[in-house]
Computed example of a mutant assay.
Amino acid sequence: MFSIEHEFDSTVVTLVDDGAAPLQEDVIINAFSECFTIEQFDPRTETVQRITLSPEMVRDLAAALDLPEGVYQLPAHSAPR
């Protein structure tokens, strides 16, 4: 299950683990014009862990999900709009 919300300066996607137990904490993805952040609460440390990706890194990740094993470099002009 997931939700999508449009904020003033970003789009927020929340992924909810509704699969079989043990369940993972929600993942929150913030899409800003200059970067994407991925956040998840860590119950062991009681802190939110955050990863920041550039738009190019997100583009590469999306492409990698559909490619076989290997090393790739996408052309700079194929960035999503």
Rank of each mutant, 00 (worst) to 15 (best):
V48I: 12
G70H: 05
A20D: 13
E56C: 10
G70K: 03
I29C: 05
E5M: 15
F8S: 14
D18R: 04
L61E: 15
A64Q: 09
V13L: 11
Q24E: 09
D18N: 07
D17Y: 03
P68N: 05
L15Y: 00
E5G: 13
P43Q: 03
E56L: 11
A31W: 10
H6A: 11
F8T: 09
Q73Y: 03
A62S: 10
D17K: 00
T11M: 05
A62M: 12
F41R: 02
M1L: 12
P75S: 09
F8Y: 06
L65S: 13
G70L: 05
R59Y: 00
L61H: 08
P68Q: 08
V27G: 08
Q24G: 14
M57I: 06
L67A: 11
I38M: 12
H77F: 10
A64W: 02
D66Q: 10
E46S: 13
E25C: 07
T11A: 05
G70I: 03
S3A: 07
R50W: 04
G19Q: 08
P68H: 11
F2V: 04
H77L: 06
V71W: 02
V58G: 04
L23C: 08
A31S: 11
F2N: 12
P55A: 01
E7Y: 02
Y72P: 02
T45D: 07
S78C: 13
S54T: 15
M1S: 15
L74H: 05
A76L: 12
T45S: 11
F2A: 15
A63R: 14
T11Y: 08
A64R: 08
I4V: 12
L53N: 03
V13F: 07
L65R: 04
P22C: 03
E69F: 13
H77R: 11
T14R: 00
L61W: 08
S54G: 12
S33F: 13
T47H: 09
E5Q: 06
S33K: 13
F36I: 15
I29W: 02
D66S: 14
T52I: 14
M57G: 14
E25F: 01
R50I: 14
T47G: 03
H6E: 13
A79L: 14
D60M: 04
V12D: 01
C35Y: 09
T45Y: 10
I4S: 06
V13K: 00
V12S: 02
G70E: 03
Q24C: 14
F32C: 02
T52H: 06
E56R: 13
Q40L: 08
T47N: 13
P68K: 10
P75T: 08
E46Q: 11
R44T: 07
M57F: 13
T47K: 15
S54V: 05
P55F: 01
F32M: 04
R44I: 09
E25R: 00
L67M: 15
E7H: 03
E5S: 11
Q49E: 12
A62E: 12
E25D: 10
S78A: 06
A64S: 15
A76H: 04
V71I: 08
Q49G: 11
L23A: 12
V71A: 10
E34M: 10
T37Y: 00
C35T: 09
R59P: 05
P75E: 04
H77W: 10
V13D: 01
T11N: 05
S10P: 04
